[in-house]
Computed example of a mutant assay.
Amino acid sequence: MYPDSSGEEKQQFAATIRDNTEKLPFPFSLIKFLPHSMFCLITDKLTDFAYFEQKIECQIKTISQIIEEQLINQIDLLKIDVEKAELDVLQGINSEDWIKIKQVIVEVHNINDRVLFIYELLRERGFSKIKQEQDPVFRHLDIYNIYASR
């Protein structure tokens, strides 16, 4: 999930799993009925699995490169969920391509006030209706969704 994550972040993720077991699909939701020590052991193992590091090489393109290659005139909805690289994606959009984007939904990991920075970036790019929210599932994590439209 996040190879460079801190121990605190892993603990927050484990707490998120523990607090949301009722939302897990059956039969996984049954872990809440286990003795506390067994329950914690399983959630810790799930956390270790989520934070397992595996390096994969892949080609990366900016949104603007894709717009140019595919001759895209309009993007009705741009959804960004790139695990802490959302700012890189947004900064890879050329100024002339922003007008082609009508709506944006971006999952933001609030590192160094990134939510505020992205909010301002979207406002500067012409988005007038912008809101942020945090899913209650992520209350232990600093993860938010930003919704923006023109």
Rank of each mutant, 00 (worst) to 15 (best):
P3A: 08
P3R: 07
P3I: 07
P3L: 12
S5K: 11
S6F: 04
E9G: 03
K10A: 10
Q11A: 11
F13S: 05
F13E: 06
A15Q: 15
A15N: 12
A15V: 00
A15P: 03
A15R: 14
R18N: 06
D19N: 12
F26C: 04
F26K: 09
P27A: 11
P27T: 06
P27F: 05
F28C: 13
F28R: 11
S29M: 08
S29H: 12
L30H: 02
K32A: 14
H36M: 06
F39E: 09
F39K: 15
C40W: 01
C40V: 09
C40I: 10
C40R: 13
T43K: 03
T43Q: 00
D44G: 00
D44Y: 00
L46K: 07
F49P: 02
Y51G: 04
Y51P: 03
F52L: 08
F52P: 01
E53Q: 10
E53N: 05
Q54F: 10
Q54A: 02
K55A: 04
K55D: 08
I56S: 01
C58G: 14
Q59L: 09
Q59T: 15
I66Q: 06
E68Y: 05
E69I: 04
E69D: 13
L71Q: 14
L71D: 11
I72K: 04
I72W: 02
N73T: 11
N73D: 14
D76L: 11
